[in-house]
């Protein structure tokens, strides 16, 4: 009875308490789904265990001056099996579920280096990707090629470079619903590219290019935050990603592009 209430309560809290920021990429709703499940399971477990501890402390507290001992139970094999098996099943479920989420985020796809990115490789034989690396499912559905952008991180700035149009910018401009491939490398120490509204993060490493793909889905300006300690001004190392309508993006692109002949 109590446990049923607990489970219902946990599901209710999982569904109704929102602790996350705005959803602004195709990745984020998938993430939030996982979060909801973990939050529900976590709430049930935490409230259940805390309840058991508090209940025991009150129910089984000794009266002042009482010197009796409790019951000499040293263990119970079936209980032990129960609380080994149930957490193992929960963990297995969570693991498989998060694998599925990971797959849907594009994490399990083999890393393909697109032909237009190959010139970026500059002899380094490996390139490591974050979640959503390689072409995303959305990309293949919409028959849109991913927009390649290069990111150079340094103390204490993110610099974006658009190979098409040869634009160098401190702000990341991307059109809505357009898959983006970020190829990232650091000039000095390790940095990390994080957009909370996209639910994505990838370290930017010196001497080791990394890639990150995402599809923005909501118009707005979101912070890009460096998440890896990179020196005294680490806290101030921020930039902005501007997600805009395709027309607005095109306008920005045309204003800044150096090679006009390329059609976007």
């Amino acid at each position: 009875m109590v446990s049923i209430c607990l489970i219902i309560g946990g599901i209710w809290i999982g569904n109704n308490v929102n602790l996350l920021p705005i959803v602004a990429s195709s990745n984020a709703p998938v993430y939030d789904e996982l979060f909801k499940v973990l939050f529900t399971i976590g709430t049930i477990l935490f409230v259940g265990m805390t309840g058991l501890v508090i209940y025991s402390l009150i129910k089984f507290r000794s009266k002042p001056g009482e010197l009796e001992d409790g019951i000499a139970i040293e263990g119970n094999l079936s209980l032990e099996i129960l609380w080994t098996a149930v957490p193992a099943i929960v963990i297995l479920f969570v693991g498989l579920y998060s694998y599925d989420i990971y797959d849907r985020m594009g994490g399990m796809q083999p890393l393909e280096v697109h032909h237009h990115e190959q010139h970026l490789m500059k002899g380094s034989e490996r390139i490591w990707g974050g979640i959503g690396s390689s072409s995303t499912i959305e990309a293949s559905n919409q028959f849109t090629a991913a927009l390649p952008i290069e990111l150079t991180a340094m103390q204490f700035a993110f610099i974006f470079h658009y190979p098409k149009g040869d634009i160098t910018s401190g702000e990341l401009h991307v059109p809505i619903d357009q898959p983006v491939n970020l190829t990232m490398e650091s000039k000095d120490v390790i940095h990390a590219f994080w957009v909370p509204e996209f639910r994505l993060k990838q370290d930017v490493i010196p001497g080791q290019p990394t890639i990150l793909s995402f599809t923005p889905t909501r118009i707005g300006r979101y912070p890009i935050i460096c998440a890896e300690l990179c020196g005294p001004y680490h806290g101030g190392m921020r930039a902005t990603v501007v997600v805009e309508k395709t027309e607005d993006y095109q306008q920005w692109f045309n204003q800044n592009a150096k090679l006009i002949d390329i059609e976007a």
């Binding site: 998938v30 993430y31 996982l34 979060f35 973990l38 399971i41 976590g42 477990l45 935490f46 963990i91 969570v94 693991g95 998060s98 989420i101 990971y102 985020m105 994490g107 974050g130 979640i131 990390a192 994080w194 909370p196 639910r199 994505l200 993060k201 990838q202 998440a227 890896e228």
Partner: peptide, 17 residues
């Protein structure tokens, strides 16, 4: 509990660091 959540790669990429 937060540790099990953090162990999940897709969860961790948002909240890591």
């Amino acid at each position: 509990i937060t540790g099990v959540a953090l162990a999940q790669v897709p969860f961790d990429v948002h909240v890591h660091d």
